[in-house]
Each structure stands twice: as structure tokens, then as C-alpha cells.
Design a protein around this nucleic acid. Structure first.
Lengths: 241, 241
DNA sequence: TGTATTTGTCACAATGTTGTAATGTTAGCT
DNA sequence: AGCTAACATTACAACATTGTGACAAATACA
């Protein structure tokens, strides 16, 4: 997760309060004291969400939100408005400029965090739900199930039990078959970009995945390419006599 | 489940007519006389479905529908268009902006209700109050009852006693089976997205639901998917020894 | 008003998962 | 064959996630 949140708030006390709470909840926080400062920071920080005070000195919150909605890069960033007023007309303007939610001061830190999480959740693309089917294996991200579909007795699907990492690893391999992936590439794509993990760890997870697939006789789908990495392949191996 | 319907219609007579009929059919009704008013109400009321007049003063129906489809929160709300015209080009625009159905004026109240129910059934199964029956469990939203229907002795129904939240949770799960739901998704859909509770609270309610189902031997319908969430499934898991 | 039910949260237990290191195997080379 | 680097396998402790019972606050109900 570790989403980055930009707080645009002129009052230092509130800024500090929010900042503290968000950090405590695992967010990365950046602060701006004015819309002008925020304009600069947005392009530096590229936040995943912006907490925006309604009333700001200089450019006010609404104008800044409108500005954000114009930039190609910034218009996709969700905005949560912080407001002391509960005016109907405020709600309208807020929603019109594309605020995703608004929180009325005073608010509890927990409420704020909950709303942030809710907004982030809605923004995230429903991580490709498509069923992948290769080499007699079927992986369904929606139900989080891996089943064997090969044998004649199609009525009885056998389920393969995998841990979270093995599941992601298999998903990645099944959506990128017939290609060799170095350990580094797998770490980047399956574990995440900036994770510090030993290359050798991949071996272990490949092993775990293979063991799970052994039970259903599908472990030969994952092949080792010496000196390069691993490959998921349905093609028969060609032996030279 | 007493779905909430927002009527957006400028003519008071028609508004009243529809409103009266929907209330009679057990719906909760909110009314707006213009798109502008509706914009505000949508976020307050969070309706399960919107009945939208094609021709409105100010912002017209299509533009409003388009606006709704932009909001992350509102884009999932089903829309039924009300129109006096039967123009082909109208149909097209209606479908383009994502209307789920359209009703041509004048319409019979019965037809309108039928269409609403049809759309709800398709888009929001848990909001329609049809009886759900899955995996040997029968849940009746109208009478608020859950019974076991499995065993041969069909004359003797056993009732499962659930608290309100457990009931809603089970209802949601039973109308969305086989799919993994994260705690966050369950909070959004079962608790409502303006409610703020800890993620882990879901665990506790799952536990309560399971305990209630234990009594009738149905607790294995609710499965934990580690690192992902929970799933309601009547498919037997086949593990390899 | 008192009583029962429901609800959200917490603390701790139980369980599963993960990364690493140590050790065993294999493939490719001379 | 012997050597070596690359890979496989295993074990394990640290870590994360989930299960569970208890509790107090909120709520409904009589």
C-alpha cells in the first residue's frame, strides 16, 4: 500500500495533527501550507490523494481543485475536501470540481483515515479480474482459486492451495507465459518495485509453487532456465537423444 | 431490502404519482425537481437506483447521467430513464451514458415497478427483496428469516438466528457467492460507505455469522482466503492428501 | 426506567506465511 | 572424472494475518 498523501492546509496545528495520524496509519505524508506551494509539490510528490482545505489564503480550495482537474497528470488524483462549513452550496461546488469526498471539521482522525481508505479503494482499478487458463490450470482472481481442468472427469475440479505470494507469482507467470523471467524481474513484478529481498528467495517460492502443483501433476509447467531465470511453458520440452 | 430510489422529475404531478406507487411497493423514495438538486441529494441519500427524467430544466437528463457516471461513487448506481420520446437517437444517447433501462411516458405504474425490480435484480441483487437460496441455506429478506433446507426431511425447517448486521452480511455474501470480498469491500457494501469502522470488525461479524451457522452445520460455507478476504462458496474444496 | 440485544473494539491466542541461511544436487565445463 | 557455479531443498525463526472471547457503549424494547 503505502499511499502518498498531500495535505494542503494553512493552519500548522491541524496540519501537524493530520500528518501525525496519517503517518501512524502507514501513509507517506507531504504537507503544503498554501495552494501555491501545493502546485509546486504536486508535480514533485505525485501524491495518490490530496487532502484539501476549503479555506486557504490566496488561491482557495475550490480554485485549486479546479486547477488540479485541468492538468492531465493531476486530474486523476482523488481529492478529499476539509471544510468547517456545511453549506449546501459548498457541497455543490465541491462535488462540481470533482472532490471525491469531504470531511467536516472537527473530525475524528479515525474517520479521516477511514474516508481516505474508502476513496483509495474506489479509485484503484479492480486488479484485472480476468480468468487465466493455461496448460490445464485455471486461475480465477475474483474467487482467488486455482483449479486443474485437465482430466477427463471434468465434474470434479481439484483445487490447488496456494499462499498469497505463490498465488501472485503463478498469476504473473500464467499471464506471461513462454518467456524467461529473471529473478530480478519477478521480484519487481510480483513482489513490488522497491522491495529489498534476496534474489534467492524467488527460488524458494518457485519451489513452494512447484510443490503445490506437484500434487496435481502440473509442476512441470514451471521450468528452470539455467543462468537466466524461470519460465511458465505449456510447450513440451524437446529432448535430444 | 427496502431499496432507496431517487426520482429526478420536474413535474410535480408525475413526481407524486411515481412516488406514491413506489412507496406502496415498499421502496424508500427521495425526490428531486432538478439535476442541480439531485446532485446534492445523491451524495446524501446514496440511492440504490435513480429514476431520471429525460427532459429537465437546466441540466438535462443525459448530462446529469453523464455526470453520475463520472463520479467513482455514483457510477455504480443503476439509472432508469423516463422519456416521452421514442426516438432512436434518444435510445442511443441513453445507452451511451449508461442508462440501464428506459421507460416511455405514459407508463403504467406496474410496468415501472417491474422494470425497477428487474434492474435491481441484475445490478444490485442484495437490494431487491427476493428470496435467496444457496448451498442449502434459504434467506428471505421480506420475513427476515434464514432457514436450512438441506436434509431429506424437508418438513422440518431449522431457523438460523442472526443479528441485523449478520443478516445483512449473509445476504450480501449469498447474493455474491464464489467471489472473494476484502474487508474493505464488505464494509462498503454491507455497512455502507459512509460508516467508519475498523477493518477487523468484519472478522468479528464473520465469526458471529459462522457461529450461528455452526448450529446447523453450514459454517463451512464461509471461507477465509488468507491475505484477501472472505468468500461464500458451496463448492467443496478438494484437497490432495 | 430498567433490561436485553446488538455492536465495535481490544487483547491475546492460534495459525499461516515469508525471507534467509545452511546444506544437498545438478548441469556444464575442462 | 573432477570442479564449480547455479539451482533445489529443507528447516526455522521472525513476522503477519486471522480467530476468539470479553467488554463497554450504544441501541432497542418492554
Amino acid at each position: 500500500m503505502a499511499a502518498t498523501i498531500l495535505i494542503v492546509e494553512d493552519e500548522p496545528a491541524i496540519q501537524e495533527l493530520i500528518s501525525y495520524n496519517l503517518r501512524n496509519n502507514g501513509f507517506i505524508v507531504a504537507c503544503a501550507g498554501s495552494a501555491e506551494q501545493a502546485k509546486i509539490m504536486v508535480n514533485d510528490v505525485l501524491p495518490d490523494l490530496i487532502l484539501l482545505d476549503w479555506m486557504l489564503p490566496g488561491t482557495n480550495g475550490i480554485d485549486f481543485a479546479r486547477y488540479l482537474r485541468q492538468g492531465a497528470r493531476t486530474k486523476v488524483i482523488p481529492i478529499i475536501m476539509l471544510t468547517a462549513r456545511v453549506d449546501e452550496s459548498d457541497k455543490v461546488s465541491g462535488l462540481e470540481v470533482g472532490a471525491d469526498d469531504y470531511v467536516i471539521k472537527p473530525f475524528s482522525p479515525r474517520e479521516l483515515v477511514a474516508r481516505i481508505k474508502a476513496v483509495l479503494r474506489r479509485r484503484l482499478p479492480e486488479a484485472s479480474d480476468e480468468i487465466v487458463e493455461t496448460g490445464g490450470l485455471k486461475l480465477d482472481p475474483a474467487t482467488h482459486r486455482v483449479t486443474v481442468t485437465d482430466r477427463a472427469d471434468k465434474s470434479k475440479l481439484i483445487e490447488v492451495n496456494l499462499g498469497p505470494t505463490e498465488f501472485r507469482l503463478l498469476h504473473y507467470l500464467m499471464t506471461h507465459t513462454e518467456r524467461v523471467h529473471t529473478r530480478g524481474q519477478l521480484l519487481d513484478r510480483v513482489w513490488g518495485d522497491h522491495v529489498f529481498v534476496e534474489d534467492r528467495t524467488v527460488d524458494v517460492h518457485i519451489r513452494r509453487l512447484r510443490r503445490a502443483l506437484e500434487d496435481v501433476g502440473k509442476d512441470d509447467l514451471i521450468q528452470t532456465v539455467r543462468g537466466a531465470g524461470y519460465r511458465f511453458s505449456y510447450q513440451c520440452e524437446v529432448d535430444i537423444p
